[in-house]
Design a protein around this nucleic acid. Structure first.
Lengths: 235, 235
DNA sequence: AAGGCAGAAAGTGTATGCAATTGCCCTTCG
DNA sequence: CGAAGGGCAATTGCATACACTTTCTGCCTT
């Protein structure tokens, strides 16, 4: 179609498409299994098919969409099994990060972690879910960086991103805020002691609890082809 | 340019490009830091820029090339630091897979693992490096699958793939074959006992030893821009 | 002489057009 | 009446053309 596009913000067009389509997927506006027609998407966002194609490639690499050769793309269908496996992976990855953090964080990193963690106690008392969520993200990021391992960092961040849509409502649960802080406290304490194993165990327990809390919100299969899912994970 | 392209085989053109360029990178024909000009590559393989671009996107997602917006793509420069972090990640991932395998493998899977492992003893006595390498790959794949966790499986396979070019010469070292088998034996034994922790530790040790053996072959920085590498991992 | 600012050249990012493959529907035969 | 085969529409895959960004070169200014 014609020249300028309208509303969405900065960055290259492909990035805009990745964000736009990705958002619609993680917010559930585009439902799993839904067909993603290149031409329609291009028209919808008033761009050509080229950046849409490239964006679909990126999203495919991120695991948000599935691409069948010559047969178009669909929103990735996340099975219960795969979701469980991702949560379990997340617990293991966080455990590794916490363990390495306990062993490798510099004194500066330890101090920053401790200070931020103590500071966040106030947010719990106030019941400031929004702010605590922001702090929570920062807290975990510190753990990932503190592991001093770029590849594990990448895997962890990517897994966390893919789980984002399923973690949204976790802090809605009553008392979850205080409990989260206590679990963080166990991790911080272990890291301060330099006790890698304890830190890892505490982190794993923390994530496992979150995953159980989130599992409630994970919608079951709503597509017809449940036959393709091979039952596996025990958890 | 003109119609049919020549020699490379099946699959969509993009896949061919991914394989062609990817091969040239892992075999060292394209050196780290080398500029990847879309037009030149397109001309070199007698295709248009479009599939080349898409292939570069895929390779970027795989971590084989680096893409700077508006500034082209280069062969990914794997720093010593990042290489070390990948080997370390590999050890951790294999440990997880072995631990889960010990806890979750079906009796059928256990039996198959044991049988294959025992059968491979013959290859060690014969000193059949080629065949053992094939078995070795299969052995580890069984561990990955045996973990019964699709996401960990994906991460492990991807990491292993990225490390492939640096693992090539590991079995050249004298006595490595027999030692590898013994290490495998420790893993199998632990899995048969259902001892997850022992299996994990054995697997981690196994990979760690391999990484040390391979580190010899990891060439240091050979590009001029060593300034862009931020020092991190302690190891 | 050194620094910086045009202007041009190179190269990426996006748009559009064409070819090829796929899936669907209608026809035809058993 | 059902199934198989062929043609048609729709959609993806690839090629080419155009626009914008970056970079290099050379000249001008200080």
């Amino acid at each position: 179609m014609s020249g300028k596009r309208g509303l969405i913000r900065s960055g290259t067009t492909v990035d805009q498409m990745v964000r736009a389509i990705g958002d619609r997927i993680v917010t559930g506006f585009l439902r799993p299994g839904e067909k993603l027609d290149e031409a329609s998407l291009a028209a919808r966002f008033d761009v050509s098919r080229t950046p849409v194609r490239e964006a679909l490639g990126h999203l495919s690499a991120m695991g948000l969409v599935e691409r069948r050769p010559n047969r178009g793309a669909i929103v990735a269908v996340v099975t219960q099994e795969h979701l469980a496996s991702m949560f379990e992976s997340m617990a293991e990855l966080e455990a590794i990060c916490a363990r390495f953090s306990a062993e490798r964080m510099t004194s500066i990193e330890r101090r920053a972690l401790e200070i931020e963690h103590q500071g966040s106690a106030r947010l719990v008392q106030l019941g400031a879910e929004e702010d605590y969520e922001y702090f929570n993200t920062e807290f975990h990021s510190r753990l990932y960086r503190g592991a001093h391992n770029t590849h594990i960092y990448e895997m962890t961040v990517m897994t966390r991103g893919r789980l984002a849509p399923f973690r949204r409502a976790q802090f809605m649960l009553p008392g979850r805020l205080a409990k989260s802080w206590q679990e963080h406290d166990a991790i911080v304490t272990a890291i301060m002691r330099g006790d890698g194993n304890a830190a890892g165990k505490a982190a794993k327990d923390h994530v496992s609890i979150v995953s159980e809390a989130s599992a409630v919100f994970a919608v079951g299969e709503q597509t017809k082809d449940a036959s393709t899912t091979k039952p596996r994970v025990a958890t």
